[in-house]
Design a protein around this nucleic acid. Structure first.
Lengths: 140, 140
DNA sequence: TGGATAGAAGATAATTATTTTCCTTTAAGT
DNA sequence: ACTTAAAGGAAAATAATTATCTTCTATCCA
């Protein structure tokens, strides 16, 4: 179910509230990280006539407003997530799941700035490996 | 010009040596990070009849053998680079240039492992901001 | 609350990007 | 040199994304 927060948020981002958009937010809120195709398949169940173009247009509009963000993952199609407090991602190379992880970036950021002399204002950190469940399966 | 090393390397990766492949390696060696389209345009000058499919097929083959690696960058098309010692990337949001940067990842890796309980064996770190040149231009 | 209207949805076409096919050519190993 | 597996090139096939156009609806305001 959708939280009022999300509705308010959509509004505050100047995105018109439509049933399709609400559904997109719900999907993202409950599943976390979804590809365009994932979203489309999920929405089809609720809106049998929804167009793939509608998914693209909405995700693009939401990205534009920074309401959602694209996550580019090695060896996979891009996933989308609701914008939230800054975080990194861990990806399981086995089961493909993607999770958020909050880590301190100060140390590495300082080093990057120091070494590169860039003024950094964004970081996209993806860590790939095996999730705890897949580690177990693998050793079994 | 191509270094013998690259030829040897191509061989050692079981990739048949062809003029087109040599050119791809040269392009990547001299320009660092190139998109498929960049590569195609560069190669066209030397091989007016080269096919875009050849570029795709070769890059895919080289990726397969881990001779080159894809670098997924926010808001940009993927770039490709020769595989080398592990490193992170800095991207200038203004002039779009991409550079390698070597930083210690031990601290953050430990934290990621600790927080996520994943067994991590790969990291893709992209830092976006302004390169020194663009910082200057911007304040001018 | 009942329009007016900007913007969204849906269908489809058009682009763009990527992969595959098929046939010719060539690199690499006898 | 000869053989063969693999690569190149052209074009077709797929996939992914964007654009267009018409219809519909959320939002705004009298």
């Amino acid at each position: 179910m959708i939280m009022k927060d999300n509705l308010e948020l959509l509004k505050s981002y100047q995105l018109k509230i439509t049933p399709q958009r609400i559904a997109i937010v719900e999907e993202l809120a409950s599943h976390g990280h979804l590809s365009i195709e994932d979203l489309y398949q999920g929405l089809l169940e609720r809106f049998p006539t929804i167009s793939l173009a509608t998914v693209y247009k909405n995700i693009n509009a939401m990205e534009e407003k920074e309401f959602v963000q694209e996550v580019k993952i090695p060896e996979q199609k891009s996933k989308y997530e609701l914008t939230k407090a800054h975080h990194a991602h861990v990806v399981c190379q086995e089961c493909k799941k993607v999770e958020d992880v909050v880590v301190s970036t100060k140390t590495i950021l300082d080093e990057v700035k120091d070494v590169s002399h860039y003024r950094i204002n964004r970081d996209d950190l993806i860590f790939t490996g095996l999730c705890p469940e897949c580690v177990v399966k693998q050793s079994a």
